[in-house]
Simulated assay, not measured.
Amino acid sequence: MNKSAYLGESSIQMLHTWIRDICDPDFICKTILDQIILDQLVKEGMEIDTTGIPWMNQLEDIRKNYEKKDGFVRSEHEDGSIFDACFKDKKPHGVIRKMNGLGDLEFYGCIAYGKLLGVCWKSVPGGGFMISSNVVFSGPGTIYLYPDCRLGFSGTFKDCLLVSGLLIEVTGFESDERLQGSIIRPVTSTISNQEYKMDISSSELFSSFPLLAEPYESIFVEVGESRIPGAGQGLFAKVDIAFGTVIGFYNGHKVAAEHDFDTTSPYRISLDKDIDLDIPEHLTNLDRYQATLGHKVCHSFDPNSNTDLFLHPRFGLIRCIVTIKNIEAGSEVTINYSYDMTTAPDWYRIAWAKHQKNVRGLPDWRMAMLKSGINIFEK
């Protein structure tokens, strides 16, 4: 294909703007590509295997309900999902975008007569992106980008998980001029020859690469002695961090949910209502496990971060640490453990009582002594 490459910081910013556009529900893919150009390019595209892709069937339903034979259509549904699609001769023929009801990008690409032209994009839980030359986002040559859309992996993937690949950084983008800038692909460079592989925990093995540090996380945080009395080690910001930034990851064994946290591991965290993540006690030290650092984050009732779901290319579906305030370099990262007070461990209930005294001005004998001007012994 006739491609133009754009490199440098300005091009990276252009790439980020393009990504924001295609992920914006209010952005409508109105540009219908020149059909002659598409017809000329179709022989260069990749044949699409629609097996296991439910939205392909949804496209057919949309077409049947569409009054015009050819052209662009936007279909909005009660669940909040959106389809932007182009059709010709009753087939998808142009830019296709599918967004789910949560506003996540499930697919963005250009299809002509059953062939994918260039690459396609999708977002994954937590804010990462997959870029692939096939609609199932598997196989060699697939790219994963972290939420900053600068760091990522390139290699062989299966169902959005990394089979084997290398760490990359984005240096710009390239675009096929004949696709009028509607589809672009990141230009990347390899950072090192360190091979990364899928490392999903099982009941028998927590991690196959326990000392291979998470590269994205290493940009933002490091472990040090917590400033919270008695808390041990904590997590600290290495750089100034804006609110809404994913900064770390909480990996663990997937075990049945347990709500009596006073009798379970202090490193257990909820993944969802049925599953918890837990780290074996003997692997909580950095000399034995440092593939993720989220288990080092300490509790606060006035936290600067929170947790969210994250589909990690190495660890699968885990939790991430995401900031809810701006954090200055050197500051300690904290989250609210959000235990149920009826089953919370003793230290949590005590901390909650102290917190309530501070924020609500509940009775405190020290303050009463300082503020009282009454001498009960005077007559």
Rank of each mutant, 00 (worst) to 15 (best):
A231C: 05
S175H: 13
A242W: 03
F206Y: 12
D199T: 12
G141L: 04
L151A: 08
S207F: 04
V223S: 10
L167N: 08
S154L: 10
Q233R: 11
G155H: 03
R227H: 03
E217P: 06
S208I: 05
E177D: 15
I200M: 12
R150V: 05
D159Y: 00
K197I: 06
K158F: 08
Q233M: 09
Q233G: 02
V163I: 11
I191H: 00
I183R: 00
E217D: 11
I247K: 05
Y216C: 04
G141T: 02
K197F: 00
A237I: 02
C160Y: 04
V221K: 09
I219S: 04
Q180H: 12
M198K: 14
F236G: 05
L211F: 00
R227M: 07
Y196A: 06
A237H: 01
T142V: 12
R227W: 00
I200L: 10
V239Y: 00
V170Y: 01
S138F: 01
S175D: 15
G141W: 03
S207T: 11
E174V: 07
S203I: 12
T156P: 12
C149A: 08
G139T: 09
L179H: 01
S192D: 12
S182M: 14
F137Y: 13
S138K: 04
F209C: 10
P215F: 00
G139Y: 05
E169L: 07
S164A: 07
I200E: 11
I191C: 02
I200G: 10
E177G: 13
I228M: 06
M130P: 05
F137C: 07
L167I: 00
L211T: 12
K197N: 11
V136I: 11
G155T: 10
G152M: 04
I241P: 03
P186C: 03
S192Y: 02
F220D: 15
V170A: 13
P147S: 06
R185G: 03
F137K: 11
D199V: 13
S192T: 13
S133P: 02
F137G: 06
I247Q: 03
V239R: 13
F220M: 15
F157S: 07
E222N: 11
S218I: 07
R185P: 01
P229I: 01
G152L: 05
T142Q: 10
I228P: 01
I247M: 04
V163A: 09
I143G: 06
E217Q: 14
L179I: 05
A242L: 14
I191V: 14
